[in-house]
């Protein structure tokens, strides 16, 4: 039984449908899909030192162009979630971006700004996540922050926590299970929650 809300399962299915439509030529589907993830990209890029404003707009433009170029084969590459694929693309693009600029990386926990949809529910989710992640063993807590909040790849996380990529990957699977159980216990597992 899935531990996340049905809305999350629906999001995975929605992404595939939007991608299919986008690939078939429906630009509005591509816009809708990317609109769901623009804040996520903004957060990861920000953690990697891409400033907000004009520079992020330029970064976003490059990312969209990159996805457009990959669109013909993107569905084949989408093995589990668009979010995971997108994170990989953002990391790769950031590496190129970094060659030219190297500002400091921010370390805040929660995303900034506000969302027009369900801001209170979003805030509740992040508060619950903060509490659950705080209960993780220290090593997994670091992996969680570097991997899921900062969007680092396995090798980069391994460097930060003094481990290797395979051990980090093991920690990822473990901490996801722990966070799943913790969030479920806090009630974040029902249909319609925090969608």
């Amino acid at each position: 039984m899935p531990w996340m809300p049905e809305s999350t399962e629906a999001a995975l299915q929605r992404d595939r449908i939007l991608l299919e439509r986008w690939r078939s030529g429906a630009a509005d589907a591509g816009c809708e899909l990317l609109d769901h993830y623009v804040a996520y990209v903004r957060r990861i890029a920000g953690r990697h030192g891409v400033p907000a404003g004009d520079e992020f707009e330029e970064f976003w433009q490059d990312l969209v162009l990159r996805l457009m170029q990959q669109l013909p084969t993107l569905l084949d590459r989408l093995r589990t979630s668009f979010a995971g694929y997108l994170a990989w693309q953002v990391r790769d693009l950031v590496r190129n971006w970094r060659r030219h600029r190297r500002p400091p990386v921010s370390t805040e926990f929660e995303p900034e700004g506000r969302e027009s949809a369900s801001p209170a529910a979003q805030a509740a989710f992040w508060e619950a996540l903060r509490d659950c992640s705080g209960r993780l063993p220290p090593r997994e807590q670091s992996v969680f922050e570097h991997r899921f909040l900062s969007g680092l790849d396995l090798g980069e996380v391994a460097t930060r926590v003094g481990s290797n990529a395979n051990a980090v990957a093991q920690a990822v699977f473990r901490l996801v299970r722990r966070l799943r159980d913790c969030l479920t216990a806090k009630g974040f597992d029902g249909p319609g929650d925090l969608s």
Binding site: T8, A11, A39, S81, R114, S116, F148, L179
Partner: peptide
Amino acid sequence: ADVARFETRLATSSTLPDGERAALR
């Protein structure tokens, strides 16, 4: 699939000021 659900939840729970979102849209 567990990891994918978690990633998707985090990704779609990220927020952005309305003005910035509109500009990027």
